[in-house]
Amino acid sequence: MTLAYLLAGVVMIALTAYALLGGADFGGGVWDLLAFGPRKDRQRELIAHAIGPVWEANHVWLILAVVLLFTCFPLAFTAIAIDLHIPLTLALIGIVLRGSAFSFRAYGDSRAAGVRRWGRVFSIASLITPLLLGMCVGAVTSSAPWDAAGPGTFRSTFIGTWLNWYCASVGVLALAAFAFLAAAYLTVETTDAELREDFRLRGLWAGIVVGVAALLVLLLAGTAARSMQEGLLHSTWSVPLHLATLGVAVTAVSALWVRRWRLARVAAALEVAFLLWGWGLGQFPYLLPPNLTIEDAAAPQATLEGVTIALVLGGAVLIPSLIYLFRVFKSANRTIESP
């Protein structure tokens, strides 16, 4: 195993952490948008309290993934940044609006109208951004765009790469998975039995949508992302991986059903992690199928070594700090006073 493979694994870990933590924050925004019924305001309050202290830290996982990508795999980063200019720019606008609106609502505008307006911006941006990010992931896994010999047309290079049914299905999968995670986590964030029931129901529905979307992705991959589909279906690890994913998926939904909140949270996280790693393994050893492998895209050895050392040093600071953060805010169910 080479250093390049190791670092590609670290990029996957950062993406997984972003999906499990930052993704759930987006999912919270989705439930904010879909809040209804007599406990509408209490639902929104719970979501805001759960996200408040952690979303900025959770967001940094995305930065880490991007930085590692352009440092260790500059050719892949460059190809993605050129072809996916449009959806990435749109996703960035979503990220900007989501984060600013959340903090304007939490700290700035205390008038009721202001709170409502920024809440709306926050929740709509939380819905659109995961769709776009998912579409970009879809484009990375498909073989067509990176295959084109010579310069294509504007439509084929900058639009066709991501605006198609396959990428849309990956976008929906990402959105559903994030909403599912958020619902499962939120049942643990409160001691209020009624709110728990609200999010239990939402989690059950979202869990079903995740399953359907995952199947849809696998079907549509047949034409759009052939090499990934083959990896997913015909490798030695295919059967165990699918069984494991199915197992945690069923566990997550049944745990919600029987109100085993903590188990549901763990199983939901594992399910999303398995889906992501299925993608990663499915296209291994390609970073951008069908041509660019991890090793072809890798930076010079000295860079990879330097980054590995930086990761070890940084990790030694980061991991205890993260544990402390989650200890302080996620261990007990005391309410958090915002400043």
Partner: peptide, 25 residues
């Protein structure tokens, strides 16, 4: 990429302890 990676870790500690400072009193 090296300074950018180190910067990434600095962002992490900054965001983590800002969350703790703002909400942890």
């Amino acid at each position: 990429g090296m300074p950018f990676s180190l910067e990434g870790f600095a962002f992490f500690t900054e965001a983590i302890f800002l969350g703790i400072y703002l909400y942890g009193r």
